[in-house]
Design a protein around this nucleic acid. Sequence first.
DNA 1: AATTATTTTTAGGCAAGCCTAAAAATATAA
DNA 2: TTATATTTTTAGGCTTGCCTAAAAATAATT
Lengths: 223, 223
Amino acid sequence: MYLCSVATLAEEDYIKAIYSLSGIDGNPISTSSISGYLGVNPASVSGMVKKLSAKKLLEYKRSHGTSLTAKGKKLAIGIVRKHRLWETFLVEKLGFSWEEVHDLAEQLEHIRSEDLINRLDGYLGFPKTDPHGDPIPDKSGKIAQTGLISLSKLGSGENGVVGGVGNQDSKFLKHLNQLKVGIGSEVKVLNINDFDKSIEASIDGKKIFLSDKLASQILIFKD
Amino acid sequence: MYLCSVATLAEEDYIKAIYSLSGIDGNPISTSSISGYLGVNPASVSGMVKKLSAKKLLEYKRSHGTSLTAKGKKLAIGIVRKHRLWETFLVEKLGFSWEEVHDLAEQLEHIRSEDLINRLDGYLGFPKTDPHGDPIPDKSGKIAQTGLISLSKLGSGENGVVGGVGNQDSKFLKHLNQLKVGIGSEVKVLNINDFDKSIEASIDGKKIFLSDKLASQILIFKD
DNA sequence: AATTATTTTTAGGCAAGCCTAAAAATATAA
DNA sequence: TTATATTTTTAGGCTTGCCTAAAAATAATT
């Protein structure tokens, strides 16, 4: 209905899912993993992959998997850009907290207008990262490296500053809020438990315990 | 997928269309007029009306027409509120001009979140009207009267200030831009042509001619 | 009242996206 | 290699929302 419909809503969700699952290097993705990620039936994925393949947004080889074409990747990056800019808007301008914005941005990312998103980018001051520390692709699709590493990669005695999270789950983010861990928090690893890799750390001077699972999703700039 | 889906996108478009066509008093609307307004086949309207009627969003009596229930009207006003707040945002914050925003707002109005729209309202300073001079319903659904009347209702020698437009068509709005007619312009009717009701007027001191059709869509505060 | 015109509904189809169930292909294990 | 398990595809259905064509109802004319 609006402008040229490059891709339907459902198509965009598939493209984004494949992009997320592929990682930076663009590994081929299995039908079942897409199915699991999107919570749809594998049969539905088969059909959609065929359709998107015909549109040249991805390539599919049986028993090898699906990977995005340059065109598909460009579309995916555009969606990620929109998502992260909207998240930034919601937090910076409308005062939402970081655990509230993901689902809203999921809706807003489908708004079709290059012009709108570029203006929003400018309005926000061309931010480099979103509220979760994820990099925001620029207008041309370039993504700056953040230099973030997982807190669980730090050794005992090492320290850094929290710069992002590896997960958008609102339960996880609320938990971080409770622990008073946020972007900018100073972390020092005091001790690593050999048995379960759980970490004893000081966050902004306060001592806390973190499971390995939790620590792995906290991203930091190493000092 | 998100919150309870009170109405689908298509349903919302129907509700909004019926609301627009009904006017303030909520006149019953014929199937064919909805069909014409939305550019869909009358048969499609029949089906949708039946569906919305089952949802208690509207009432339908054959050969009498369709009118919104209180529930339907509330939904419609909510959509109008969202549309006008987004238009205001696009113009005030992102620097769009008034003829560019209608189609974008048509997309944004379907974003589902009460919280978001109330925060946006606050962020914009609880505006009373949108960039076209249309009143923005408040959180509770109340719509302030603007006191605007059509320029074509003015008599010769009378004057006022432009406060809005009765039409969102971008060709119409661009034409007004060319004539340097905008909200706040001071108008004085100099002469009304008896034959075709066209108007000779001065806008901010400059003399221009307006067809009746054009003048009828320019809304003013009468001095 | 009867004819004509208009409006509205019914009937039957189509495309998108999802589903389940069953078949086929591939991978793993014995 | 054969048997078992997993993954993937095909086949057939469902819902939403649109379409066209034809039938039916209502309104307007003569």
